[in-house]
């Protein structure tokens, strides 16, 4: 059988037998009335739909749900085993407790059901009164007096072709370390020694860094000797004997 079946409400309660949204109490009622054959009720599906749903039940509600499901399982077991057992004639105190709770819950919820019916009578969906629906922002908007020429000027500004966006900031500057090394070698060949500061006067930070790397490269190759008398001061680059032979 399908669990999701709409059944007439025996207690005139507008409930649906949708087990994830629907009432377990009504299911219990229908089972007890034998309108649903408990032997055909897939209890495993029922438990999965009820407890594995997205609803986060709080502990008291979860306890009541588990109690209801356990009662169903017990009733189904009794039915499957057979009702001729003399022990079944004795009322089950737990099942009676569940039924008492069911009755108490139905009675406690009745005022809200009646309030829902009252709300239906007050629902303005069938009424004919109409309200203003203009957003306040629109109501606050005021329009001053303008000359037609102002509109023409505004349109003229819109018709001017916009300037082509500059992409200069997207161009990456490329520095060739080989060229700087060659330039440094030439300077050493001509003067014998050069000042780092003089070489980098007016240069940007990238040129500063690359020139320093060029100096270190010449020093590594033994073509130049670096000397910095004062910390953070100027660096004197002197040509070495190896540099003279090169």
């Amino acid at each position: 059988m399908s669990i999701r079946v709409r059944v007439a409400d025996p207690l005139r309660l507008p409930l649906e037998l949708d087990l994830f949204e629907g009432p377990l109490d009504l299911l219990l009622t229908l089972v007890l009335r034998e309108e649903i054959d408990l032997a055909e009720l897939p209890l495993r599906d029922l438990v999965e739909v009820t407890l594995d749903g997205e609803e986060s039940w709080d502990p008291p509600t979860t306890g009541e749900l588990v109690l209801l499901l356990c009662s169903l399982a017990e009733l189904k077991a009794r039915r499957l085993v057979g009702e001729d057992d003399d022990d079944d004639l004795a009322p089950d105190p737990d099942a009676e407790l569940v039924r008492e709770r069911l009755a108490a819950q139905l009675i406690a919820f009745a005022p809200f059901q009646r309030a829902g019916v009252w709300l239906r009578t007050q629902d303005g969906i069938d009424g004919a009164v109409r309200y203003r629906r203009v957003p306040l922002q629109a109501a606050d908007r005021t329009f001053g007096r303008h000359e037609p020429s102002e509109l023409g000027d505004a349109l003229a500004r819109l018709m001017v072709a916009p300037q082509t966006p500059s992409l200069r900031h997207m161009n990456r500057r490329r520095v060739n370390i080989g060229e700087i090394v060659a330039e440094l070698r030439g300077a050493l060949r001509r003067a014998g020694q050069v000042s780092f500061e003089e070489m980098t006067t007016g240069a940007d930070r990238l040129a500063h860094g690359m020139t320093l790397i060029a100096c270190l490269e010449l020093a590594r190759r033994g073509e130049a000797h670096l000397e910095q008398p004062v910390p953070f001061g100027d660096i004197i680059v002197q040509r070495t004997q190896a540099g003279n032979s090169g």
Binding site: P14, L15, E16, F20, E21, G22, P23, L24, D25, G53, E54, E55, S56, W57, D58, P60, T61, Q105, A108, F109, F112, Q113, A115, G116, V117, W118, L119, R120, D123
Partner: peptide
């Protein structure tokens, strides 16, 4: 079901969804 849930919230507000479910006896999600 929506009107009943609305009634529960209107009379007991502010109220959480699990509390609504407890009053109604069914899921209110």
């Amino acid at each position: 079901a929506a009107l009943e849930t609305l009634a529960v919230i209107a009379y007991l507000e502010p109220i959480s969804r699990p509390e609504v479910a407890r009053v109604r006896g069914v899921s209110a999600e």
